[in-house]
């Protein structure tokens, strides 16, 4: 298996952008050379969580792209284009801007790993992997997500995003938390819509 964070070794190095690869079989692993981000402008996020469910089940959830908007809090739209290609649109973490890109799965090992990257021309070039490894003692599966992207205005954009409290690291952590709850508990905990003494109106009334 490749290192859990293949992009780390390339951080800070300059590499030419490679064209999008559309064939899964073309590459065995997410190769470091697939880096989408030039120079030191890239932002990399790694988060992991242990889920008390079998890897195959977790992989299957993740592989069905229709499931992802359930765990991403940010308004996210994913259209399936083919078995490995998809079109994504999301509201940017700042302003009213909507970001769109085409993504393609570049590595797919059932029950083990999914890797993807944006196609050439994406406004925010990005790439990521999700790995599923058995936890010690067979107590569930360690799910590790690595996301690498090129913010629109380099580090400035990342800084702005951080200030607005929508830092991608938080988003990934939150998505993994929701994913874990959905897989282990069958639902995502919420208090939205519960009563409080703040609302003066009594909209729901029993009796």
């Amino acid at each position: 298996m490749p290192s859990p964070s293949p992009a780390r070794s390339t951080r800070g190095k300059t590499r030419p952008e490679t064209p999008a690869v559309t064939s899964v079989s073309a590459r065995k692993h997410v190769a470091p050379s697939r880096r989408v981000v030039r120079g030191d402008r890239g932002v990399k996020v790694s988060r992991s969580v242990t889920v008390r469910r079998p890897a195959d089940e977790l992989y299957a959830f993740w592989r069905d792209l229709r499931n992802l908007p359930r765990i991403v809090k940010h308004a996210l739209n994913i259209e399936r284009v083919s078995d490995i290609a998809s079109h994504w649109s999301a509201s940017a973490p700042f302003g009213d801007h909507r970001v769109e890109w085409d993504a393609v799965i570049i590595n797919d090992e059932p029950g083990k790993l999914i890797a993807w990257r944006s196609r050439e021309g994406a406004e925010i070039p990005n790439a990521g992997t999700v790995r599923f490894d058995p936890a010690p003692g067979d107590e569930g599966t360690e799910v590790a997500v690595t996301l690498e992207y090129n913010p629109p205005a380099g580090k400035l954009g990342a800084w702005l995003a951080k200030l607005s409290g929508e830092e991608p690291a938080q988003q990934v952590a939150e998505a993994l938390r929701r994913f874990k709850a959905l897989m282990e508990a069958g639902e995502i905990p919420t208090t939205e819509g519960q009563p409080s003494g703040r609302a003066e109106t009594t909209k729901n009334k029993r009796k």
Partner: peptide, 20 residues
């Protein structure tokens, strides 16, 4: 409603928000 300030208020009745 604040430090050492409790109030009995009329609020909405709770509803089922999640399947469990």
């Amino acid at each position: 409603m604040g430090k050492k300030k409790m109030e009995v208020r009329r609020v909405s009745d709770p509803t089922i928000l999640n399947p469990r």
